[in-house]
């Protein structure tokens, strides 16, 4: 069973690029355009890795992250913040909510993919 990756962002160009990259990396990709849509998919698909934007209308990325980290069945799910919010306080808040990684935009596609692969291994190692 291939690793399920959920991409959450309200910017179509980002979604398009990430979807391409993840599919090419061999992951099963899901897409959400805002926080509430993301939560629906999380409940339904229980993704293994979530790439999460913060600034979105209504439900924001922080909420989604804490939703995942407090979820009864998703304790191995990895959360990567991918956001334009780059202040130290934002980053601290992200990690405090239980994020596994915090990357700022604009980002290096190679670095992102390496990190996703690494987290996927960690996740699987723990799982084994």
């Amino acid at each position: 069973m291939s690793t399920k990756v959920l991409i959450v962002d309200d910017e179509p160009n980002i979604l398009m690029s990430l979807e391409f990259l993840m599919k090419k990396g061999g992951y099963q990709v899901f897409i959400a355009r805002d926080g509430s849509e993301a939560m629906e998919i999380i409940d339904r698909e229980e993704p293994h890795i979530i790439v999460l934007d913060i600034m979105m209308p209504e439900v924001d990325g922080y909420e989604v992250c804490s939703y995942v980290k407090n979820h009864a069945t998703l304790h191995t799910t990895k959360v990567i913040f991918l956001t334009a919010k780059s202040k130290d306080s934002d980053i601290e808040k992200g990690y405090a909510l239980g994020a596994d990684l915090y990357l700022t935009k604009p980002f290096s596609t190679r670095h992102l993919m390496d990190q996703v692969k690494k987290l996927d291994k960690v996740r699987k190692g723990e799982h084994l």
Binding site: E11, N13, I14, M16, S17, L18, F20, L21, K24, A84, K105, P106, F107, S108, T109, R110
Partner: peptide, 20 residues
């Protein structure tokens, strides 16, 4: 912030084009 959003897209897509 407004500038970063298109910049992010441009970079991501250029890298994709370069790598593929």
């Amino acid at each position: 912030h407004e500038m970063r959003t298109p910049l992010t897209g441009i970079r991501a897509m250029s890298e994709i084009l370069a790598d593929n």
